[in-house]
Amino acid sequence: MGESIFEANLILSLFLFTVGILGVMWKRNAISLFMSVELMLNAANLAFVTFAFQHGIIDGGILVLFIMTVAAAEAGVGLAIFIALFRVRRHLRVDEHDMLHG
């Protein structure tokens, strides 16, 4: 593998991350919002794996496993929160969750 594949991977990772940020900003459904956040985490994973291969340090690949585990825990808590929110309000459209504002 040449140098270019690493750079291409990093650019892809930053691109996915940006897509995730835009998703969090523009999407108006709680689930889509959370999917965007997961996309951002996976973009970070891609960057980790890329660096691990580039430098020949296995650490980066192992860190990804931990991050995936944490992301799974986050998904568990997140979906529980969405269910609680849905039970109270009967919808998940984030624009209409505006009871709290100053």
Partner: peptide, 28 residues
């Protein structure tokens, strides 16, 4: 309180993603 929890969670997870990518680049 559920709405507060939801907002805290989404923005907290959003922030964690920034943190992880930051760690990745520092590692790189």
């Amino acid at each position: 309180s559920t709405e507060a929890c939801f907002k805290y969670f989404i923005l907290g997870a959003f922030a964690s993603a920034f943190l992880v990518l930051g760690i990745a680049f520092l590692f790189g």
